[in-house]
């Protein structure tokens, strides 16, 4: 049996009105992502990656085309509880402690305090944040905050994960650390992931497949299968010849887009 398609977009388009003029940000994007697949959406800055993800997450309305989750058109007024979203920006609630942030979704659905405590403790441990539960986000480092944000999304065990450059603001070392954390979780839970990034190394480390977008307006330009064996190690993977070969192949394709993206 072939795995079923979980996320599908058909001819997805988005037009923004800027100063009375229409600006096409996304144009005719058709994607399909299978159950348990980790897909990276790669493209130069401003090519419409966040826009695509936000439309799938119902944060933005579509201008044209269709979005289906598990074969059903999404309801733009109500986010699908199966879908978890991790933001490009830090969106932890600063007035809640780390633990209260992670337990937020459980609180919303009325999970009793004792069970909430137990599950958030587990999540804290998983993210290497033991002992930081009672801290406020303002007193954590960027990497810790992003791990907490990841856990806040994962606590309700979404089967589908939309991630918008979640590690974009982190330094290289912290980023690799985060890749390790994410891969660990993913190996166990095998969520269906659509991961936006403009970092080719990150896309190669994490994903099964890379979808390359063109410079604005974002269109699907190319697609690459990343068949490195799993489980992968974020650091040693980078030293293998297969990694280098694929890197330079995609790099050339990507390079053209960066040149095009730069003069817009």
């Amino acid at each position: 049996m072939t795995p079923s398609i979980r996320i599908e977009t058909r001819d997805l388009g988005k037009v923004f009105a800027i100063d009375g003029r229409d600006m096409r940000a996304v144009d005719g994007v058709s994607l399909s992502i299978r159950e348990g697949e980790f897909v990276a959406l790669l493209g130069p800055s401003g090519c419409g990656k966040s826009t695509i993800l936000n439309m799938i997450a119902t944060l933005l309305s579509t201008s044209s085309g269709e979005i289906l989750i598990d074969g059903k058109a999404i309801d733009p007024r109500r986010p699908d509880p199966k879908v978890g979203y991790v933001f490009q920006r830090d969106t932890l609630f600063p007035w809640r402690t780390v633990q209260a942030n992670i337990g937020y979704a459980l609180e919303l659905s009325g999970v009793p305090a004792a069970e909430r405590r137990e599950r958030t403790e587990t999540a804290l441990a998983q993210a290497g944040l033991q002992g930081f539960g009672h801290y406020y986000p303002a007193s954590l480092s960027g990497g810790m905050r992003q791990r907490a944000a990841l856990m806040r999304t994962l606590i309700v065990q979404p089967q589908i994960l939309l991630m918008d450059e979640p590690f974009g603001a982190l330094d290289t070392h912290t980023k690799l650390e985060m890749h390790r954390v994410l891969l660990n979780i993913w190996e166990r839970e095998k969520q269906t992931v659509l991961f936006v990034t403009h970092d080719l190394g990150e896309a190669l480390t994490l994903s099964d497949r890379i979808i390359l977008l063109s410079a604005r307006p974002g269109r699907v330009k190319d697609e690459f299968i990343v068949d490195f064996p799993r489980p992968r190690d974020a650091v040693t993977l980078r030293e293998t010849p297969a990694y280098g070969a694929l890197f330079s192949r995609i790099w050339h394709s990507l390079g053209e887009e960066f040149v095009k993206g730069a003069d817009t």
Binding site: P79, P81, V83, Y85, F87, T91, F93, W95, A105
Partner: peptide, 29 residues
Amino acid sequence: DRDHISAARLLGASEWQITRTVIIPSTMA
């Protein structure tokens, strides 16, 4: 912060829960 509202919405908050858990606390400041 609009992103705080979006985050709450995506984590399953209803309109009233958004008011109670995001808008009121951040306005309290």
